[in-house]
C-alpha cells in the first residue's frame, strides 16, 4: 500500500483553479519532491495533502485512510508537517518545542509520559540538538531553528512527513545538512517524504522522484534526471536551463541572456 495516494485532486477558490486533476503516489521509504514556478500550486498541494485544506474534488489517502475524514489527532498520528514559515514561539525551550510533536500521542489533557520523553531525547540526539535543548527556541540561528522544526515533525513518529520549502532562508551548508538528515530518515527509517523545493539541483540530489507542477497541474512525474532534462522544465519556468554533470551529480544552471551595459 502506498504511504500517500492522491487521486483526481482539485482545489478551487472562487473562480480560481489552484489544483486540477492532480495524481500522486508516494511509497514508504521514498522521497517525492514537488517543483515548479511560483504560483504553480505547490503550497496548495502540500496543505491539501496535509489535511489543512479541503479539496473541491478528489481524495488524499494516507496509509489507506482519507486524510480529510480523520480528526486532527488521528491525522497527526499518520502525517507530520513542516510549514513554509514555521512559528517559533519566544520563551519556549527547544526541548519543549520539540515535545509539542508528541501532543497527538499523549493527548492534549495529559502530560508526556516516559515513552514521549524518550522519543524526544532520541530525536534531539539524532539531529544533534541535545546541547541546545534548554535554549529558548526563538534565540536559535536559522539552521538550528529549522532542525528543531524538523525534530518536532520527526518526533511525531508518523510514516509520512510533508515539508513546504524546508530550506527557505538557509545558507547552502545548512540546506544540505537539513536535507541530508531527512534523507537518512527516509533511507534508514522507511519514511515517506513529500516536499516542495525551489532549488532544482538540491531537489534532484535528495529526492527519488520529482513532480513538476505548473498552473495547478502535474506536468511531469519521473526520476529527477529525466525531469531535469525535459523541455517541459524550461517551458514551465519560462527560462532555459542547462544540466551539468559534476562527478555524477546533476547541477541545474539557468541560461541567463547576456546583458550589454548601456
Amino acid at each position: 500500500m502506498s504511504a500517500v495516494e492522491v487521486r483526481g485532486l482539485g482545489v478551487r477558490v472562487g473562480d480560481a483553479t489552484l489544483l486540477s486533476d492532480v495524481e500522486l503516489s508516494v511509497e514508504p521509504g521514498t522521497w517525492c519532491t514537488i517543483v515548479g514556478p511560483n504560483g504553480a500550486g505547490k503550497t496548495t498541494l502540500v496543505e491539501t495533502v496535509a489535511g489543512l485544506r479541503r479539496p473541491t474534488r478528489g481524495t488524499v489517502t494516507v496509509g489507506g485512510c482519507d486524510i480529510h475524514s480523520l480528526t486532527e489527532r488521528r491525522r497527526a498520528l499518520r502525517l507530520s508537517l513542516v510549514a513554509q514559515h514555521p512559528v517559533v514561539p519566544p520563551g519556549m525551550s527547544v526541548a519543549d518545542f520539540v515535545a509539542l510533536g508528541r501532543t497527538a500521542h499523549h493527548g492534549v489533557l495529559r502530560a508526556p509520559n516516559a515513552r514521549d520523553r524518550e522519543a524526544v531525547a532520541g530525536v534531539l540526539d539524532r539531529l544533534d540538538l541535545a546541547a541546545l535543548a534548554p535554549r529558548d527556541v526563538a534565540t536559535l540561528s536559522g539552521g538550528e531553528r529549522q532542525r528543531a522544526v524538523l525534530a518536532r515533525a520527526l518526533v511525531q513518529s508518523t510514516p509520512v512527513v510533508v515539508l513546504d520549502e524546508p530550506t527557505a532562508g538557509l545558507d547552502l551548508r545548512h540546506q544540505v545538512e537539513l536535507l541530508a538528515l531527512l534523507r537518512r530518515e527516509v533511507s534508514e527509517g522507511g519514511l515517506a517524504v513529500v516536499a516542495t523545493l525551489h532549488d532544482l539541483s538540491l531537489a534532484s540530489q535528495f529526492a527519488d522522484r520529482l513532480v513538476l507542477l505548473d498552473h495547478g497541474r502535474v506536468v511531469l512525474d519521473d526520476r529527477p534526471r529525466d525531469v531535469l532534462r525535459s523541455d517541459e522544465l524550461s517551458r514551465c519556468y519560462g527560462l532555459a536551463f542547462r544540466v551539468v554533470d559534476v562527478d555524477g551529480t546533476d547541477i541545474v544552471v539557468p541560461v541567463i541572456p547576456s546583458v550589454t551595459p548601456a
Partner: peptide, 11 residues
C-alpha cells in the same frame, strides 16, 4: 502558540 495550522498538524 505555534499558530492555528501547525497546531492542527500537531493534533
Amino acid at each position: 502558540s505555534v499558530g492555528e495550522d501547525e497546531s492542527r498538524s500537531l493534533g
